[in-house]
Design a binder for these strands. Structure first.
Lengths: 354, 354
DNA sequence: TCACCCTATCGAATCGATTCGACTCCGCCC
DNA sequence: GGGCGGAGTCGAATCGATTCGATAGGGTGA
């Protein structure tokens, strides 16, 4: 590691015998500089091994850091086990990367569902995307507001000065429930994603349900009930296959008379777990029990079935969020966006057994 | 959005009737400031809605941005479908997050396996971790060197001024191969992760093999051959279940005499695909064919088998890399680290059929 | 030949903090 | 009472670029 300090724009300018401002013009790609001068500056830069203007100094002046935060509620390993979260972020980067804007991960830790203020406060941010687990009362929101960092919330929260990008959660589950009702299902159970991030799992009481933290979780239950009336809801502790399997075992390993004829999982990952549970209990799908999911995720490891699900345009949702970020950084205020979903009937739902 | 410019440290200092330098002292948590003064400054800050010192300005002076880049070769969706990559990054953040340091994702795109220079050049970086797909001839390495950004390479590349953190790839596959040899396997095939990121799949020619881009891929083949002699290697186009299944079908759907008695996959994800292929072909594991993987990853959706595999401490590898980053940023030069691996015999390997 | 305009370059202010040496009190000790 | 030391505060330089108004010089048209 050379101890001599690295060359700066001023060093380069001096060697090229031009003013620093001129050298700056060269690197900013301005056309208003004579080719000969440009050459001289670039040659000087090459000679000194100058790697281009310091991003930090540039940011200070231009009020842009090229960094966009991505809030992923839980810790990394949990969040990225969810293929939907991954696809969403992939969509975001697809839009942002070509502009030289990077995504900074802001995970929570075991306790908190969002990033700590210490994390937020020290890092330069042009904008923030709430990619998962957006809470309306997140103290981070207030901090970002004060710093003037614009926020895009995917699937929630819906707050005044935050741009919302989401899907028709309600309509999706309404259609799914109609599909099930049409097949004669009356005893339907819902396997829900976490209502809050406190590690709770089990049947959901009305009190707990009233304190649901996440918009889409609430909406997806309401959609089912809009068609089928009140249904039992089983909460999982995480959006993961194991949790779905666990829930499935509890719901399905009961006397026939009590067993739901259909299980609606709030995500495909949970549905995959329910399918495993059914298989483990020797139940045939859909003859003995129908299973449906949500997302339309690609799960290449799924057994050779086509899951009945509500397909959402996850990657597109990410791209929309990415574009919203671009607009906000440019000073425009984009409209909220709600994307369409589509019922995708597969082989895991069938007529209710009698 | 209020149009008035946001308060700065100077504004706060003025309101509190102290010098900006004193106000700075307050926010840096210095003890050398009188409690009464501190109160006055904090009160002024609260009144103005000042969210704390601007991270960018702070970075300029302190030469720290609090941002560490994570190079993930492919695009996000591909990289994060790999549970090992996820666990690795989780380990990195576990160490970095508490220090208020954030991870910035640097994905490649369809064509390039690393981040583009445009991405790198515009973003502030204290250090970079090559999390996957480290190439020795990556032009980004040169750029980072010139900028004075220290680099930690996980699993590779091994380059002079880059800190290496890896595992005993070779010894792991040697032990695995010995295990198989002990069970009487002689006809063994390897399903390899991509040798280069060019979408190639199929049998590997000696020429192509010589041009293997990734250290660990090369080493893991050599380990097998060290014990079993030359083996056929089948390259996949990506480290994904579908690719493993595809490879498995080709390798196993042949006359019995040509069929390998054991398949060594270079990752558990690929092994899972091979298992699916075997199941699809009606082959019993391990009676008809043995299957082994690498990583010791948690695949909760795996059929109820325990995969024979080489377990590596992935999360610990991430933590070690994280600590190396901390050292480098502090100006220390940590040693390279090579972590132990352990053969984990499961239920997917058994005596070779005769 | 002169006024004018355009192009290429330059100077200086600015972005918002940090940092270190200097300075001012004030109390204490001799 | 004078000198000394330490606590608390302040000034000014600095980090490395960007940006805009100013300027010099050369070419054009009348």
């Amino acid at each position: 590691m050379s101890d001599r300090s690295r060359p700066t724009l001023a060093t380069v300018a001096a060697l090229a015998e031009v003013a620093p401002s001129t050298a700056s013009l060269v690197f900013s790609g301005s056309t208003r500089v004579a080719p000969a001068t440009r050459e001289r500056v670039l040659a000087a830069a090459a000679e000194l091994g100058y790697a281009g203007p310091d991003p930090v100094a540039r940011s200070l002046r231009s009020r842009r850091s090229g960094v966009v935060g991505a809030v992923i509620g839980e810790r990394l390993a949990s969040a990225f086990n969810d293929p939907v979260a991954v696809q969403l972020l992939d969509g975001v980067t697809e839009v942002l990367s070509p502009l030289g804007v990077g995504l900074l991960l802001l995970p929570g830790d075991a306790d908190r569902s969002g990033p700590t203020l210490a994390q937020l406060a020290h890092v330069p941010l042009d904008a923030v995307v709430y990619a998962t687990c957006g809470l309306e009362d997140d103290p981070a929101l207030d901090h970002l507001r004060r710093r003037g960092v614009p926020v895009v919330a995917v699937d929630g929260p819906r707050v005044d000065d935050v741009v919302f990008v989401g899907i028709q959660d309600r309509r999706g589950t309404v259609e799914l429930a109609r599909h099930l009702a049409g097949l004669g299902h009356h005893r339907v159970a819902v396997v829900a994603m976490p209502l809050r991030l406190d590690g709770t799992r089990g049947p959901v009481s009305p009190e707990r349900r009233a304190r649901t933290h996440y918009r889409e979780v609430r909406e997806r239950v309401l959609g089912v009930e809009e068609v089928l009336g009140a249904v039992p809801v089983w909460e999982t502790a995480a959006n993961a296959v194991e949790e779905g399997e666990r829930a499935g075992r509890v719901l399905l390993d009961v006397p026939l008379a009590d067993r739901p004829t259909a299980v609606v999982a709030q995500s495909d990952v949970l549905a995959a777990g329910v399918l495993r549970a059914a298989a483990g209990l020797g139940l045939r799908v859909p003859e003995d029990v129908s299973v449906a999911g949500f997302d339309g995720a690609e799960l290449p490891w799924l057994p050779p079935v086509r899951l009945t699900t509500v397909a959402q345009p996850t990657a597109e949702k990410g791209r929309v969020a990415g574009r919203a970020v671009i607009d906000l950084v440019a000073g425009r205020r984009p409209d909220d966006v709600v994307l369409d979903v589509r019922l995708s009937v597969g082989t895991t739902t069938g007529p209710a057994p009698r």
